[in-house]
Amino acid sequence: MRPILLQGHERSLTQIKFNAEGDLLFSSSKDSVINVWFSHNGERLGTYEGHNGAVWSIDVDTQSRFLVSGSADNTLRLWSVQSGKCLYTWEFTTAVKRVAFSEDDEQIVCVTEQRMGYQGAIRVFRINRDGDGTDQSEEPESFFNPIGSKAVVCAFAQTPNLIVTGHESGKIALFDAKTGEEVLNNERAHMDVVTDLQLSVDRSYFITSSKDKTARIHDTRTLMVIKTFSTETPLNSAAIAFLKPYVLLGGGQDAMSVTTTSLRQGKFETRFWHKIFEEEVGRVKGHFGPVNTAKPYGDLEIED
């Protein structure tokens, strides 16, 4: 199958997401713009403009109605997928590093950065889906500051009001969104910063990637490591293939040192690993920089 190259961002991508049907692909970038593409031909359908800084994270609800984004401009924004209009903006004191919808589309969770005397925070907002989407509550439904190592990635776990997080230290944890209590943790899930966390369709397990050069599958309820995929390069992203027994791992060294190393040494491939046998089954070359994010759908489409 010929890969489809989506060209349109001026700076590196930070996250990509398919909608539930898989016909639309959303991409966020450091160029402060969010794009939406037709996934079957790579044609750009539209853009979401308004952020004044790198867009770190995006998520789309299961109805393809609302898009949420978090940015270095210290805002969390809710967008109309169809019209491209920004419906609501929440402002914070630090950058929004990660956003995610709950499985019922009713809530959003976001992680804000720890910086300049501000603690890193996790907030959960309840989304008012009535009307045109502009009537949102400014106040979060819950708010807490994880103690210890700062959280960098997050998502809703299986059970309502339970948040799964990945931390700078390599820790993964489950938090009660209502009380802010750390319900469970695995301090040694990774030996270095967790760079990505993606859940399986039924949310019963998830994959994490880390700068420690491994990706791991964990049981969402127990946080036990089920599988480990050991590579020779720091990883930026890990994704679970849909209906196929593979995981996709993306990595490479930091963009800063790209110019000083050859492409070969940079190891900018997307690797396919067998999910159950923990063996590498293939690589896709053709990236000119580190693979920052990967998200498979159907025939295993990937982007950098």
Partner: peptide
């Protein structure tokens, strides 16, 4: 490999049995 697949499938069945009702319902046909 057969052992690994059997282990995986046994774990997946356990996961499915313990899946919260809300998610079970949502996944439904899919």
């Amino acid at each position: 490999r057969k052992r690994l697949v059997d282990e995986w499938n046994a774990w997946r069945i356990r996961c499915r049995d313990e899946l919260p009702a809300a998610i079970k319902k949502k996944l439904g046909k899919a």
